[in-house]
Design a protein around this nucleic acid. Sequence first.
DNA 1: CTATACTATGATAATGATTTTCAAATTCAC
DNA 2: GTGAATTTGAAAATCATTATCATAGTATAG
Lengths: 147, 147
Amino acid sequence: MDSLLKRINLEIAAIGGKRSRSRAQVIEVFFRTGPHATLEDLTHAVRKRNRSVGYATVYRTMKLLAKLGYAKELDFGDGPKRYESNLESHHDHLVCQECGLVSEFQEPRIESLQEQVAKQHGFLPTMHRLDIYGLCRQCALAGKKEN
Amino acid sequence: MDSLLKRINLEIAAIGGKRSRSRAQVIEVFFRTGPHATLEDLTHAVRKRNRSVGYATVYRTMKLLAKLGYAKELDFGDGPKRYESNLESHHDHLVCQECGLVSEFQEPRIESLQEQVAKQHGFLPTMHRLDIYGLCRQCALAGKKEN
DNA sequence: CTATACTATGATAATGATTTTCAAATTCAC
DNA sequence: GTGAATTTGAAAATCATTATCATAGTATAG
Ligand SMILES: [Mn+2]
Ligand SMILES: [Mn+2]
Ligand SMILES: [Zn+2]
Ligand SMILES: [Zn+2]
């Protein structure tokens, strides 16, 4: 974690930035917090440590992390964007429309088929987003019982 | 087209709604317009026929069509939502980050792998969204020439 | 250490898109 | 037609994101 922060600060310096306490706190909270957190989630979490950190700083820090490739912005179509670490390996998402639960999966065969599709279209892919919406196990069972 | 409108009006009546001229015009324009249109696009198109139709009516009509399953809302992460007919067969999208071109593809093997993934997680899927972002053929070639 | 030149910050305002409100118009069953 | 209902257009409200700006903090040179 400390070495990660150091590495990030180096990259920030490399593009003409300076370090800052607030930003370091945001970064640390982000990597310690569970995945799929909103800016509001992160702001609250940071403020537990340092009451004076503003929403704008969280916003700017997350944009910065996204630009540097350390964070990913997710949008599940409902409320505000969510953020997750980009250090873990790539995965896609199952989103429960009932309870909001977001779970993750990897399926290399889907990934490679996507590459094929892109190639067939002369398309140069840089990223993709695959979200499957529906009912998680819990909510699916709850729904069945009702009938 | 006329029979489609009739069918939709029946469904509207079934949920306690009434018909209306403006709404019929919006619906007709929607199904005649190319895919991936924004509310603004649709509003402009409708107004060419009937100056007095308001944005709110287009908004409400598209929400209604989406609820009834005739339209799909798309969000490619940049500007406003886009709408497409849900009468055609299912497909996913390739979105060019340079010129905005949106093209479509079908890949049954991806579809069935998604089913498998969902099943493995005890997840009951209702829909999914797969968008591949990158450079379309044109923009990819233009980019190469620059180097 | 101090001055100075810069970046980062927090509060607030601006923006952009979506959604709601409300009085007036339209539809429809009687 | 009449009356109870839904629908409408314009405008306002909401919501998330992004920009602005005066102040605070950071790095660097002397
Ligand atoms: Mn995830
Ligand atoms: Mn499409
Ligand atoms: Zn659930
Ligand atoms: Zn392109």
